[in-house]
C-alpha cells in the first residue's frame, strides 16, 4: 500500500489531495506512473510533467518504490 499525495495542479487534475494505492509490493517508478495515469485519466497529461518524490527523495526512472512509501506528485515549481 502506497500513500500518494498530489500538489497544486496535480491535485486539481487528480481531483483528490491524497489516496492510498494497493500495489502488492515494490514497484518500479515507471509502473507506478502508468498505474496512476490509468486510474485517473484526467491526471495523465499533467503527471507526465510532474516529478515524483519517494520517501523524500526525487525518483529517477530506475527508482523502485518500496511498499508503504509516501509518494508526492510535484508539478514544475513556480515560486518567486
Amino acid at each position: 500500500m502506497l500513500t500518494v499525495r498530489y500538489f497544486a495542479g496535480a491535485r486539481e487534475a487528480a481531483g483528490v489531495a491524497s489516496e492510498q494505492l494497493e500495489v502488492g509490493g515494490p514497484t518500479p517508478v515507471a509502473a507506478l506512473r502508468r498505474a496512476l495515469a490509468a486510474s485517473r485519466p484526467g491526471l495523465a497529461p499533467v503527471l507526465s510533467r510532474c516529478a515524483l518524490l519517494v520517501a523524500g527523495s526525487r525518483a529517477t526512472d530506475d527508482t523502485v518504490v518500496p511498499d508503504g512509501a509516501l509518494v508526492d506528485v510535484l508539478p514544475p515549481f513556480a515560486g518567486g
Partner: peptide, 27 residues
C-alpha cells in the same frame, strides 16, 4: 539565490485572470 529558489523550492502558483479564467504557472 533567486534563480535557485525558483528552481528548487517546492512552491506553486495559480494565476487568476480578469476574465475569470485561471491557470497553474509552468504546468
Amino acid at each position: 539565490l533567486v534563480e535557485r529558489i525558483k528552481a528548487e523550492v517546492p512552491i506553486w502558483k495559480k494565476q487568476q485572470f480578469t476574465d475569470g479564467e485561471s491557470e497553474w504557472v509552468g504546468l
